[in-house]
């Protein structure tokens, strides 16, 4: 099976500063692993959602794929060609086929450029299209904006309109994959629906694959074919969205789903306490155990291996939900 995008054991490291002493090299600190060995595959024309709390490394992973942050370990293959890792051909192959949709709708548009200039930029950078002006009109029409928006500046757009311009820019070179970083963050529910419908429509018409980074699980449930749950830079559960929503295995996934559920009546206390631990001091064993209500003795010492059930799902948990005989290891 050849996926559109295949990531194998990807890691991204950042230097961990460490104050003046660290900067002078007197007391070098080990680097922080923001992404710590992630593997996933994305099929053409489908949507894959990466979910997790702030600091789970999901945005860093997205940026690593398009080369905005360097890859420390692992491989990225796009359409079978290696773009990062041993024998990589570089990002050239990727630039035109992969676009990124940024989180901040207005902030990702250059404030001193008109919409026309912003939308024509991909064509100019890659030296394609004889008439960028016409392409701009086509793109505006594609995302449902009137032609006269071309003359506006970003600050003259509403949040929803700016988001559409961002989508139009991402679509410019007819990419095969669009990486969307929190595309619905800060949007009102009515506008959010419009944007997601637009993305679904574009996927149906143009066969675009989306890698969506989000913490909004409701959105994931409606639009993603597959999903991965990230915690401290690792995928703790991964699989088909419908399967994970109906029966989460990892306790973290379970807690996230419970937190996202819209109660009609008042729910009890939060399912998980505390916050994401620091990447500098990763807990031993299963990294989720300090917050987990189901931790066993071995969770404190032994990192759980990957339990894979065909291609449908995989997870890393010693005491998974929905499996009989708690305490007994569910897989190998």
């Amino acid at each position: 099976m050849s996926a559109l995008l295949a990531i194998e054991d990807l890691a991204v490291r950042f230097p961990s500063g460490g104050g003046l002493a660290g900067r002078l090299g007197l007391r070098p600190l080990p680097p922080i692993e923001a992404v710590a060995g992630v593997s996933l595959a994305l099929e053409a024309g489908t949507t894959y959602a990466l979910v997790g709390e702030s600091g789970s490394g999901k945005s860093t992973l997205a940026r690593a794929i398009v080369g905005l942050v360097p890859v420390a370990r692992g491989t990225i293959r796009f359409q079978g060609r290696s773009v990062a890792g041993p024998g990589a051909e570089g990002l050239g192959a990727l630039r035109r086929d992969v676009a990124i949709l940024f989180q901040d709708p207005v902030g990702s548009l250059s404030p001193r450029r008109t919409v026309r200039s912003i939308l024509a930029e991909p064509f100019r950078v890659h030296g394609v299209a004889a008439d960028p002006g016409r392409e701009v009109q086509r793109l505006l029409a594609e995302v449902g904006l009137a032609a006269d928006f071309a003359h506006r500046y970003p600050h003259q757009l509403s949040g929803g309109q700016a988001r559409r311009v961002g989508v139009a820019r991402a679509l410019a070179l007819r990419p095969k994959l669009v990486i969307a970083d929190e595309p619905t963050a800060g949007l009102d529910v009515s506008v959010q629906g419009e944007l997601l419908n637009l993305m679904n429509d574009l996927q149906a018409r143009l066969g675009i694959a989306f890698l969506m980074i989000t913490h909004n699980l409701h959105v994931v449930r409606h639009v993603a074919h597959r999903m991965g749950v990230m915690y401290l830079g690792r995928l703790v559960e991964e699989g088909a969205t419908a399967v994970i929503f109906s029966s989460p295995r990892h306790r973290y996934t379970e807690a996230l789903l419970a937190a996202g559920a819209e109660p009609d009546a008042r729910a009890g206390g939060p399912a998980i306490r505390g916050e994401v631990p620091s990447l500098i001091a990763r807990p031993p064993g299963c990294e989720f155990h300090p917050r987990c209500g189901f931790a066993l003795a071995r969770c404190r010492t032994e990192a759980p291996g990957l339990t894979a059930i065909g291609t449908l799902r995989s997870f890393r948990c010693h005491n998974p939900a929905g499996v009989a005989a708690p305490g007994a290891p569910a897989g190998a």
Partner: peptide, 30 residues
Amino acid sequence: FHDARHPYTRALLTCDPGRIREATRTLPTI
């Protein structure tokens, strides 16, 4: 939440993807 009477309140509740039980790829909008 159980007996919304103003069309805007109703539209707002309808749009909330968390309240749509069946997964759908066409979400309601205002």
